[in-house]
Design a protein around this nucleic acid. Structure first.
Length: 493
DNA sequence: TAGTTCACG
DNA sequence: ACGTACGTGAACTAC
């Protein structure tokens, strides 16, 4: 059995300790007393066996006693079915995935780290040259002072700490000022390049090398089954749910995630699952029809909103509609859409108004969801998962956050429920296949399978994913799953 | 340890 | 008038 980093460092049961104190009136043995802390800290495999036994036995005992304490509550708040169908059976599935791990080629990562280091050194020299003085490029505070105080860029906004904001959106704006402030524009553009490489190196190519288990040659993440409020999983130590994919340079990191000898990686991901869920729960005829007919959903939205025939759709109009579709899922606001599309707020609000005019059922659904949350203090997914909304009746800016979260939760949560159902059925659905499920990335499952069995795996896993809502929920929209395969994750995607 | 930034869906 | 896209985790700086 593999020992996770969380176990080594004793970070896995702080939540349980608090529950034990609160509900059982019992302070469990603190892991710190066994491992020590600071320089002399040891790992769990070095703990004296008697101490380890006492600790582990108490851990199991507290778990049982907490279960006994909580079981009546499950029934009282009507989440027994959710617990028994979406939570408990997922635990062994996640355990298998964590133990399986995924093979990562450390040499590939090492070569990339070296290349990144060279590139960063060059960019750093360029940055110091433009700035006219040496400074820590990784310090947003120092960068802000140089751009806004020394180089005279206007419109700097300071955050809570009094430092100028220098996030990517700010730097991108400055980078367009070639005519007004060419030096600052070049500096901002170069820092953006440096930041991207720096991120890839520190968070991925460097950190992942450290995460390779020397015994397995594989990286073993930990999944939190209760990590996210909406029912999504969370992945930690390392997080394998945020491996780069959006940029070409970032995507190459996925080339280091490889299949074992004689094996292939297969990736299956739900296509537009959240918009499909929205089409179902809000019961929008046009959206349901578009999914039924396999029409490009963003193009359809654009066509409906802007009156452009599908045959005359342009990429720019489609891009706007896509941002609106995403915005709707997130509990759209004029401000947020304006910022995302970089258009005036009034214009963004106009888009939203037109969207709701064209799809009145969406507005009705959103209002009903918020009203439900206000009255009950929670919202629910199609599968009965409850997401609590304690701030929904708050005043001030908090109200806006709570409102948007309440709108998003049933949609994001239902998608999470569906992929959980697929994962729970997957061992049975693939029992005759030499395949292992390795990773879940919210709407994607990644498998490792014997060469020559990829087609059979894709058929079985795809069917399982596409049928995962049934029979609990009769979705009025079909679910579509796209599949890919390759020697590494970049190829498989 | 808080704040900032940025990687993903 | 205010301040906002939803959900996460990790690295880094600066206090």
């Amino acid at each position: 059995m593999l020992m996770s980093y969380a176990m080594y460092s004793g970070q896995h049961n702080h939540g349980m300790d608090a529950l034990s104190i609160r509900y059982l009136g019992h302070q469990p043995i603190a892991i710190k007393t066994l491992l020590g802390s600071g320089k002399g800290q040891i790992t769990f495999d070095r703990v004296a066996i008697d101490d380890a036994v006492r600790y582990a036995a108490e851990d199991a005992d507290v778990t049982l006693r907490l279960w006994q304490a909580f079981k009546p509550n499950l029934h009282r708040v009507q989440v027994t079915t959710v617990y028994e169908t979406l939570e408990r059976p997922l635990v062994p599935v996640l355990a298998e995935m964590e133990m399986a791990g995924i093979r990562v080629d450390g040499q590939v990562l090492s070569r990339m780290s070296n290349a990144f280091a060279q590139k960063m050194a060059g960019l750093e020299a360029e940055i110091q040259e433009i700035a006219g003085e040496p400074f820590n490029v990784g310090s947003p505070k120092q960068l802000g002072e140089i751009l806004f105080d020394r180089m005279g860029v206007e419109g700097g906004e300071k955050g809570k700490t009094g430092a100028y904001a220098t996030g990517a959106d700010v730097l991108e704006d400055i980078a367009t000022l070639e005519d007004v402030n060419p030096k600052a524009a070049r500096l901002a553009a170069t820092v953006l390049d440096w930041r991207q490489i720096s991120k890839l190196k520190s968070t991925y190519t460097d950190a992942l090398q450290q995460a390779i288990n020397p015994e397995t040659g594989r990286v073993h993440t930990s999944y939190s089954i209760a990590g996210a409020n909406t029912g999504r999983l969370a992945s930690t130590d390392p997080n394998l749910q945020n491996i780069p994919v959006r940029t070409e340079e970032g995507r190459r990191i996925r080339e280091a995630f490889v299949a074992g000898p004689g094996l292939r990686l297969v990736s299956l991901d739900y296509s537009q699952i959240e918009l499909r869920i929205l089409a179902h729960v809000a019961d929008i005829p046009e959206l349901k029809q578009a999914f039924r007919e396999g029409i490009d959903i963003h193009a359809l939205t654009a066509s409906e909103m802007f009156g452009v025939p599908l045959s005359e759709m342009t990429p720019e109009v489609r891009r706007r509609a896509k941002a609106i579709n995403f915005g709707v899922i997130y509990g759209i606001s004029g401000f947020g859409l304006a910022r995302n599309l970089r258009i005036p707020r009034a214009e963004a609000q106009g888009f939203i108004d037109r969207y709701f005019e064209r799809f009145p059922g969406i507005k009705t659904y959103m209002d009903a969801t918020v009203a439900f949350a206000r009255e009950k203090g929670f919202v629910q997914t199609l599968f009965g998962r409850k997401i609590h909304t304690p701030e929904i009746n708050a005043k001030g800016p908090t109200a806006g956050f709570a409102r948007r979260a309440a709108i998003n939760a049933p949609i994001q949560g239902a998608a999470a429920d569906i992929i959980r159902r697929a994962m729970i059925r997957m061992p049975e659905a693939t029992r005759d296949l030499p395949a292992k499920m390795l990773l879940q990335v919210h709407d994607e499952l990644l498998f490792e399978v014997a060469e020559g069995e990829t087609d059979r795996l894709i058929t079985a896993a795809k069917d399982t994913m596409e049928g995962a809502a049934h029979p609990a929920v009769a979705l009025r929209v079909h679910l579509a799953v796209e599949a890919g395969q390759g020697r590494n994750w970049a190829e498989a995607h």
